[in-house]
Design a binder for these strands. Structure first.
Length: 550
RNA sequence: GCGCCAGUAGCUCAGCAGGAUAGAGCAGCAGCCUUCUAAGCUGCGGGUCAGGGGUUCGAAUCCCUUCUGGCGUGCCA
């Protein structure tokens, strides 16, 4: 918001001076505080088109800008930067605006109601959710929350692969475990089957309620029955894990339902109409190389069943049909080979593949005592999302997942995340919030908390630390738009850590509640109350609690 | 082989999409609690931004190339 005001000032002055401004320039916060509170590259960017030296341009601009009361200092530096030092009054005015916004601070119409579908997790319903799903859940949900705040109309969906090969194997695995319970010798448990302990538990549960009745059914009925039972149980298990993680979905889209609704046939006919299919080796192929893929893909296998690709494509088709403007898929690291074919299919069906955006989350490596925790899905040795929440807690887990950008491998140190001390950034941030609450409590106890604050007391806030906090608070709206544009929720973590550090330093340096000056106490309490509000907003966006005390 | 992603301090990572002297936390060392929470604060040391070339006023950031690591390259999902 401050940046926008400075930007507007610059435009006003440029126009007044008759300087053309076709190229975009930026207003930034310099990383060196000697360069002022804000700086712009305006003169350097516009020098060429105005056929003037950057420094000359800067000087005339500075002359004009100095007429405004908002700046304490406007200086030229380096090759033509213009550095601004704001008057305290500018900050104080900003501060009052943030206070007025209250809990709505950061809410904008930047997204202009654009409908965005976020698909994430979408794990196979063949086992408990793992930590990669947990990362996807934290990431996708945070993007959702931020987008919503800046004016998009986002929606979260979980695509359930409740049909196809994997589910058949699940049912077969369950049957084997059931027979095992009944004392049958099943020999060696098949390699492809699901080895996880949870399948045994499912068998026990089913056995307890139905016993031998299961074996009286025909083979076909029994497999259907086992499938349905296992899917229901596992889906419910996954849903419960996500709920513990404070992640919910607007939609759970079932592959089985899609197939029943005939969308799959619809997709096949579209591709055929587009003259992109052919038959070879008893299979039906999609000529995806026509649209940039490096090899053609099978749609229908020689045994007559369709590949995973087709219903998934059908699902994406429904997303478009339901009127979403932007489709964001959040995938695990092992799916990037999948992109060219799905984009090719979009083009083949006559849709702009630009509306489909795919974000890849890199893998998660767990570390314990400096050792990598080895996991094997096949052998049923995985650390589940529930395990993780049990061990490190929801706040810590979400924080660590959000704090890394998507493209980075995530080395998750279990011990660090478990620690409730200064080594853990989550607590560092939450502690800042709790501290503020504690000071407020103290003020109330000392009768230093007024019924209402006089906003003009903001003028008392003129310490470097105080102005810096206000500046940081004012960064939030722009930060949220940037996060939504670039889909980079990790910046929330950076932001909250910086803000927390400022609060801890401020606390250490200044007495807030003091009998000496009531007005100053009130001014500082206002600052802390507003900071607390902003921190709470950020925690909420991250899905992390904002504790009153620790 | 080909494709995608990554490589920044001892470790984990930022670096605001091209800006000024590359930052933070942890680890290490030295200090700070009769005062609103020491889960904190203050100070010190620590770098060939993997290597090389290019683009320009200016590169950790963009392009090319080499090296290293991860993943992908199924009629699996």
């Amino acid at each position: 918001m401050i940046k926008d005001i400075i930007h507007d000032h610059l435009i006003e002055c440029l126009d007044k001076l008759g300087i053309s401004r076709d190229k975009e320039f930026t207003v930034e916060i310099p990383n060196n505080t000697d360069h002022g509170d804000y700086s712009t590259n305006c003169a350097m960017i516009l020098a060429k088109e105005n056929k003037k030296a950057p420094k000359t341009l800067a000087e005339s601009l500075i002359k004009e800008l100095k007429k405004k009361k908002d700046y304490k200092k406007v200086e030229m530096a380096g090759p033509g930067f213009i550095n601004f030092t704001l008057s305290p009054a500018f900050f104080q005015r900003t501060f009052r605006e943030i206070r007025e916004a209250g809990a709505d601070f950061g809410i904008q119409d930047f997204g202009k109601g654009e409908k965005v579908l976020l698909e994430f997790v979408s794990a196979n319903p063949t086992g408990p959710l793992n930590i990669v799903s947990a990362r996807a859940a934290a990431f996708g949900d945070t993007i959702y929350r931020v987008m919503k705040r800046v004016g998009y109309l986002p929606s979260r969906e979980f695509y359930v692969n409740d049909a196809g090969n994997q589910v058949d194997i699940l049912a077969e695995s369950l049957e084997l475990r059931l027979r095992e319970l009944h004392g049958d010798n099943i020999g060696e448990f098949p390699y492809e089957a699901y080895h996880g302990e949870y399948v045994v538990h499912l068998a026990q549960k089913l056995n307890a309620s139905e016993g031998v009745r299961v074996f009286m059914m025909t083979e076909k009925d029994r497999m259907e029955h086992l499938k349905e039972f296992a899917l229901n149980e596992l889906l419910e298990m996954q849903r419960a894990s996500l709920e513990r993680f404070d992640v919910s979905f607007e939609g759970w889209v079932s592959e089985k339902t899609l197939r029943a609704e005939g969308v799959v046939e619809e997709v096949l006919s579209y591709l055929t109409e587009a003259d992109c299919t052919y038959e070879k080796d008893d299979a039906i192929w999609f000529a995806s190389t026509k649209y940039g893929d490096d090899k053609d893909r099978v749609l229908m296998k020689s045994d007559g069943s369709i590949t995973y690709f087709v219903p998934d494509l059908a699902y994406h088709l429904t997303k478009i049909q339901r009127g979403f403007d932007t489709l964001i898929d959040i995938f695990g690291p092992d799916h990037h080979g999948y992109v060219p074919r799905i984009k090719a299919a979009f083009k083949a069906m006559g849709y702009d593949d630009g509306i489909l955006e795919i974000i890849f989350l890199q893998q998660v490596n767990l570390f314990e005592s400096g050792e990598r925790v080895k996991m094997s899905k096949r052998a049923g040795k995985i650390v589940t999302m529930d395990d993780l929440i049990n061990v490190v807690g929801k706040d810590s887990a979400r924080y660590f997942f959000i704090a890394r950008k998507a493209s980075a491998h995530l080395n998750f140190d279990l011990e660090l995340a478990m620690q409730q001390n200064n080594e853990n950034p989550v607590y560092y941030c939450q502690y800042a919030h709790a501290r503020i609450c504690s000071i407020i409590k103290k003020a109330k106890k000392d009768k230093m908390w007024p019924k209402s604050f006089k906003s003009e007391l903001a003028a008392k806030l003129n310490k470097t630390e105080e102005l810096a906090i206000i500046q940081k608070l004012s960064d939030l709206p722009e930060l949220l738009t940037l996060i939504s544009i670039h889909r980079e929720p990790h910046r929330l973590a950076t932001y909250i850590e910086e803000l927390a550090a400022m609060i801890h330093k401020y606390y250490a340096r200044y007495q807030i509640v003091s009998a000496k000056s009531k007005d100053l106490t009130h001014a500082r309490l206002m600052l802390l109350e507003t900071t607390k509000q902003v921190m709470a907003i950020v925690f909420e966006l991250m899905g992390i609690s904002a504790p009153e005390k620790m």
